[in-house]
Design a protein around this nucleic acid. Structure first.
Lengths: 227, 227
DNA sequence: TTCATGGTTCGACACTAACCGAAGCATTGG
DNA sequence: CCAATGCTTCGGTTAGTGTCGAACCATGAA
């Protein structure tokens, strides 16, 4: 009575601590090399190699060769979606929640979810775009309205310049911290990169945390007001 | 560099085939006994008992004793959400997709997702409610508008009678078949039950498939038109 | 060519956990 | 009271796999 696709193979892959660490590290959206991932996962290079080949085989991750390095990224945004969903569940049911460290607060405030903005600032942006009708839900299809397109252009982001036009422009993703939606998809990715080039935000090295500059926070708050 | 909650323990639990089968079976929303789940999973009663205690320990499932039976259900809707996300990923990346059996088509058309309506009919209902502004997105908070409340009352469903008012009334959930949102939460649960009492739908035993009666399909289409 | 670095493959070890048989509780029904 | 049913616990076997040392390939630099 197996109804629906087989879950267990994928779940088993995520189920190993080393591999889970690898995937979580890749949630930063950065392309990381095998050695970096090995140290992230706390295993030697050989075992990491074994894990990576398995993950790639199931296309949970994607590889890009470059010189004598191999750069790994998550296989798709769906993978990131599953990981965030799992984090939400773990945060809720995980009784033995590691007590919130200093970094945890920063994570809740602003972090990168694979390649877009998440955390309180992420949901703030999403909400602000929604109430001004720049972003609209159509069934499930989330799309940018014409006034939204003007707004984005006004921010200085060129929609045409966004890469890989085959994928969805807007997509919503819900995060484990405040259980609200934030903006993913090509636009979400583009906006995050744009904020970085504008100098509003800065990514804390070796983590998913995002720091706002003083000026950046002010401008962000002005650009994305809430009622 | 473990950022975020620990995923691997939960994923490992779902990663065992027997447990995955158990959880998938519970996606039907029905409360099942230990022996039923054992046969679903294809293991003996003893091993099933072991699995069930582990799942309950992690509160992925919930138990209710009744006489000399123990009835199991999923722990929360978040668990169902994770499972559906995993199914979506498995359907997409799983190269060795078992070719669609006869039941697969029925599953895509209408099935139960834990306790609410999913599949093509599920997304149709969702879309229809959205375009008529009976349901509205507010940031992430999905809520029923006043005209929506009238509509629901007109269908013959008493909102006050819905159980467990502590949980959310509306919630969206996206399914693995057509990658669109459908309605979950207390209202989604209530509507599914209502359709059943109206005789519009019938649940195929021992599966998650939902069958429409001829008359039921007609009335459903009329109640939830699409552009 | 020689060296160094990044990554893979092989083999062996150890540890976990899934599995079932058999016995043990608990509840219901006669 | 005894019998039957539903489930749990215990013990021992077995299979799988995560782990690392060591040797092996490939690329780039000196």
């Amino acid at each position: 009575m197996k109804d629906g696709p087989d879950i267990s193979i994928i779940a088993a892959l995520i189920g190993d601590p080393a591999r889970a660490n690898i995937l979580t590290a890749l949630m930063s959206g950065k392309a990381l090399t095998a050695s970096e991932l090995a140290s992230e996962a706390g295993v030697t290079l050989q075992t990491a190699s074994s894990h990576l080949s398995k993950l790639e085989n199931a296309s949970l991750i994607r590889v890009r060769k470059q010189g004598r390095h191999k750069y790994f990224t998550l296989g798709s945004e769906d993978v990131a979606h599953v990981l965030e969903a799992l984090m939400g569940l773990a945060a809720g049911t995980g009784r033995l929640r590691t007590r919130p460290g200093p970094r945890d607060g920063a994570m809740r405030h602003a972090r990168v979810c694979y390649n877009h903005l998440a955390g309180a600032m992420g949901t703030r942006m999403y909400d602000s775009l929604m109430v001004r009708d720049f972003l609209r839900h159509d069934g499930d299809m989330l799309h940018l309205t014409t006034s939204g397109q003007e707004f984005v252009a006004q921010l200085g982001l060129d929609l045409q310049s966004l890469p890989s036009p085959r994928t969805r422009l807007c997509r919503d993703c819900l995060d484990w911290s405040d259980r609200r939606s934030h903006l993913a998809g090509r636009l979400g990715r583009g906006l995050l990169a744009h904020f970085e080039t504008l100098g509003w935000i800065r990514r804390v090295p070796k983590s998913r945390v995002i720091e706002y500059s003083k000026e950046g926070q002010k401008l962000f708050d002005r650009a994305f007001p809430i009622a």
